[in-house]
Simulated assay, not measured.
Amino acid sequence: MVDRDFDAQLSRLFAEPPAFPDAEGFHGRVERRLDRGWTLRRLAIGAAGGVAGLFAVGQLISSRFATDLRSASSESVSTVDLGVDRLMDQVNQFVATPASVETLWLGAALAAIALTFAITRLVEEF
């Protein structure tokens, strides 16, 4: 027959890890290494996001508005108003197309997600 007290005692002994005298020091070293890694990851991800955002803005400006800006700057002062009107027409066309509206909503959703991540990070820090 199996002695239930012995089994329970054996299970309790192996359920908890043994305590070592340098456990606190080891814990502190592991925590410092993990914190250092997270800081580096946060900085790298933030820098990569910033660079990607700059590229996206540059592509948007060069693809949609560069021709109007070049033509407006090369024209005389009297025709600048016409160039601004054409630029505003381009902006209105950009917003009016379905793909552009989806792009704007996607941008707004990504901004909301980024704001949520920032708020959760602040809550965890404090």
Rank of each mutant, 00 (worst) to 15 (best):
F94T: 10
G37P: 01
L43D: 11
F117M: 10
I113M: 13
D7F: 09
A48Y: 10
G28P: 00
A112F: 05
G37V: 05
E125V: 10
E31T: 03
I61L: 11
E124C: 09
V30S: 04
G25I: 02
A15T: 14
G53W: 09
L13W: 12
V95H: 03
A15H: 15
E102I: 15
E24K: 06
R86N: 06
R12G: 10
R4C: 01
M1H: 06
T116N: 15
V123Q: 13
R29P: 01
A96V: 06
G37I: 07
G50V: 03
G46N: 09
A72H: 00
S62P: 00
L104R: 04
A72Y: 00
G107A: 07
D81N: 04
D85S: 07
A118R: 15
G53H: 07
E24S: 06
A48F: 11
D89K: 06
L13D: 12
D35R: 01
F126P: 10
W105P: 02
L110D: 11
A15K: 14
L104Y: 04
T39W: 01
F55I: 11
S62R: 04
I61F: 03
L40V: 12
M88T: 08
L54N: 01
P17K: 10
D5H: 06
T67H: 11
Q93T: 09
E16I: 12
D81V: 02
S76V: 11
S71L: 09
V57M: 13
F94S: 10
A47S: 06
R29M: 08
L34Q: 01
T116H: 15
M1V: 04
R4T: 02
R41Q: 04
G46Y: 06
A8T: 07
P18T: 11
P21I: 05
S63D: 09
R12T: 05
R12M: 07
R4M: 03
L69I: 05
G28A: 09
A15C: 13
E125G: 09
A99D: 15
F94Y: 12
A118Q: 14
A8G: 02
E31W: 00
S78E: 10
L122M: 12
T116W: 15
R64Q: 14
A108I: 07
S11K: 12
G107E: 02
E125F: 08
D7P: 00
L13K: 13
L43I: 11
